[in-house]
C-alpha cells in the first residue's frame, strides 16, 4: 500500500440478495485531495461512503482507510474520520453549543501530542456560520442551518479524512459559497482529505480536484472536470462579436481556433468568450453512454459544432 494513500479500495462488491449495488469498485484518495463522487440516484454512492466509514460490511473486496479496515477499526481510527451523513434528525432537544461541546470532549483523549486537538466550540460555530445560534435548540434550526451543524459535528475532531454525503442540500447561495471556501481551506491548510457526494455538478466542479462518476455500481469516470470533458471529446464553445454580429463556434481545440480568429486582419473581434465544456454536459453524456449503447450513440451525435447564429 502506498504511504500517501488515505483511502485505497480494490474490487469492492456489495450485493443485497440478488441485487448488486457495487460491482467491482476501485478507488484511491491521496492526502489532501478533495474528491467528488457523482452518479444518479441508486448508483451506489451512499453505499460506497458507508463502506468507507465502516458502517457497512462489503460483500467482497479490499478496503483500507487510513491504514485500517474500517469495519474493524477502533476508536483511535474513528477519531481521525469525520462523518456527515444525509438527513440527521438526532439530538433535536439539545442546545447547539452544548451538543458540540459534548462531542468535542469525546475526541480529546485521542488528540495527538503536539496536535491541536478538537475545535473549540466558538471557533467551529464561526467557521460554519452558526456563531449566533450557539444557544439555540437544534430543532429550531432551519434546514440549511441544521446541515451546517452536521458539517460542524463532522469537523469537530479535526479529522484527517472527511466524508460528506450531500452536504449542501438546503443551503442558500451564500451558505453554499462559504461552505466551498471552508472545504478549500481544510484541504489547503490542514491537509484534510475530503470525499463528498453531491447532485450539484457546479459544486463538484468548483471544489473537487478530482471527480469520480459512479453508475450502476461501477466507476465509469475518474479525473478532473477538464480531463473528463476531454475524455468525452466534446468541444468548447467560442463566442464573439464581429462587426456587430454575434458568432458561436464549437471547437475541439479552442486555443488554435482563437489564435486563428485573432490573426484575421480584416475583422474586428469583440466580446470574445471561450467556455469550456460544462461538467453537466460531460456527466450527462457519460451516464448516458453507460446506460445503453443506443442512447450513447444518440447523445454523441447531438453535439456537432454549431454554425454561426445572428441575432
Amino acid at each position: 500500500m502506498d504511504a500517501d494513500a488515505v483511502v485505497e479500495v480494490r474490487g469492492l462488491r456489495m450485493t443485497y440478495g440478488a441485487r448488486t449495488v457495487l460491482d467491482g469498485v476501485d478507488l484511491r484518495l491521496d492526502r489532501g485531495e478533495v474528491v467528488a463522487l457523482l452518479g444518479p440516484n441508486g448508483a451506489g454512492k451512499t453505499t460506497t461512503i458507508e463502506v468507507l466509514e465502516g458502517f457497512r460490511q462489503p460483500t467482497a473486496g479490499e478496503v483500507v482507510v487510513l491504514g485500517e479496515d474500517p469495519s474493524r477499526a477502533g476508536d483511535a481510527w474513528r477519531a481521525k474520520v469525520g462523518v456527515v451523513l444525509q438527513s440527521w434528525r438526532d439530538h433535536a432537544r439539545w442546545p447547539v453549543g452544548q451538543l458540540l461541546e459534548q462531542f468535542a470532549a469525546l475526541y480529546r483523549p485521542f488528540a495527538v501530542a503536539g496536535g491541536q486537538g478538537p475545535y473549540g466550540v466558538d471557533e467551529l460555530l464561526e467557521l460554519v456560520g452558526l456563531a449566533d445560534r450557539r444557544r439555540a435548540l437544534v430543532r429550531s434550526l432551519s434546514g440549511g442551518q441544521r446541515r451546517r451543524l452536521d458539517v460542524a459535528i463532522g469537523l469537530v475532531g479535526r479529522p484527517e479524512l472527511l466524508f460528506l454525503d450531500e452536504p449542501t442540500t438546503g443551503f442558500d447561495p451564500v451558505a453554499r459559497h462559504e461552505f466551498h471556501e471552508l472545504i478549500h481551506a481544510l484541504s489547503d491548510f490542514d491537509d484534510t482529505t475530503v470525499l463528498l457526494t453531491t447532485h450539484d455538478l457546479a459544486e463538484a466542479e468548483k471544489i473537487a480536484g478530482r471527480i469520480l462518476i459512479l453508475d450502476e455500481g461501477r466507476i465509469v469516470a475518474n479525473g478532473s472536470a477538464a480531463e473528463l470533458a476531454r475524455a468525452m471529446a466534446h468541444s468548447s464553445e467560442v463566442t464573439w462579436r464581429e462587426d456587430g454580429v454575434r458568432h458561436v463556434h464549437s471547437a475541439a481545440e479552442p486555443e488554435a481556433f482563437v489564435r486563428e480568429l485573432l490573426t484575421r486582419r480584416e475583422v474586428e473581434v469583440t466580446e470574445l468568450q471561450v467556455r469550456a465544456q460544462t461538467l453537466e454536459a460531460t456527466y450527462l453524456a457519460m451516464v448516458a453512454r453507460h446506460e445503453t449503447a443506443a442512447t450513447a450513440a444518440a447523445s454523441a451525435s447531438d453535439r456537432r459544432p454549431t454554425n454561426e447564429e445572428a441575432r
Binding site: 458502517f55 476508536d75 438527513s87 434528525r89 438526532d90 439530538h91 469525546l106 475532531g157
Partner: peptide, 20 residues
C-alpha cells in the same frame, strides 16, 4: 426512538460513541 432518529448511528460515528 433514538435508534429511529439517528442518535444511535451518530454515536457510532464518534470515538467511544456507543459506550458513552
Amino acid at each position: 426512538t433514538e435508534r429511529e432518529d439517528g442518535t444511535l448511528l451518530r454515536a457510532r460515528s464518534l470515538p467511544t460513541g456507543l459506550p458513552v
